[in-house]
Amino acid sequence: MANVQLIGIKKHFGGVKAVDGIDLEIKDGEFLALLGPSGSGKTTLMRLVAGLEEPTGGRIVIDGADVNDLAPRERGIAMVFQSYALYPHKTVFGNISFPLSVEKMPKAEMQKKAEWAAGLLGIGHLLDRMPSQISGGERQRVAIARALVRKPKVLLMDEPLSNLDAKVRHTAREELKLFQREINVTTIYVTHDQAEAMGLGDRIAVMHDGTIRQIGTPEAIYHDPANTFVAGFVGIPPMNFLEREGVVIGFRPEALLPAEAVPAEESMRLRFIVERVEDLGSHRLVYGTIGGTKVIANLFFRTPIAEGEERDFAVSNRDLRRFDLRTGERVRP
């Protein structure tokens, strides 16, 4: 277990700045989710920590030691790949014990440790199988067991759930969190799925164009976005934006409510033209315009509303966020 410090990390591929000057500190035992759209540099950043890429500039410090010049194997890290990257010609046991056999560990000890890791992930009964004979969810567990068997200082995960189908993914996410808490290993988790980042991360770093646009707890990222990029990227559907008196005003779809549901004082009144209503069971998404700008409201499923209607809506003042019109950065009163 260890903390990780990134100091001014850069990685340029020719003219492309995949990672462009990142400073970041991940605390001992923390679960940090790197969230961003594809091409934002999050996977490159993780590969830099792993040592699979060489930084163009900056320093990487793990557990107080500069690891810039160390090979991946000397950094005390382990990684779970998106495709799991299991060795197809080795059994599950062979896969899990491979990192130990590299260390020339005695057979009996290797057996014990591999069984411990397999037991931790509930795959003890699969040790004799080949990767081609087990399911996607089981392969993912094998990949995690292989990563953990050496008790790494830092665990890196590159979209480990993205190859699972929706149902399995949900349970896998829950297990992953429980299990990370149990062993308390410092974890960097790359994802483009905000539900994963919100659900798993102690903190989330939102990346865009090779830089970190905001870093904070899931609550802070969601409710206190630092700029319009984060506000627009996080949240399904994203935050609504309106231009008022030279600033951009943002509010979440669930904060946009029929006027009668919001106390008149301390709120902003808006005339909402309803264009389309999407019933999603537990809630309904209402698409429409306010003063010509498209907005979305997320309402409780019993709220009566009809397409084509024009109604007074309101947003409570505490749910309004202000951003600079030009830079998109948050304007705090």
């Binding site: 792993a50 040592g51 699979l52 090979a71 991946p72 194997r73 890290i77 382990a78 990684m79 790949f81 990257a85 299991l86 060795y87 197809p88 491979f98 990192p99 590299v102 260390e103 292989r146 050496r150």
Partner: peptide, 9 residues
Amino acid sequence: IIEAAQVDG
């Protein structure tokens, strides 16, 4: 797979 082996030491 090659990178996994690299990371595995």
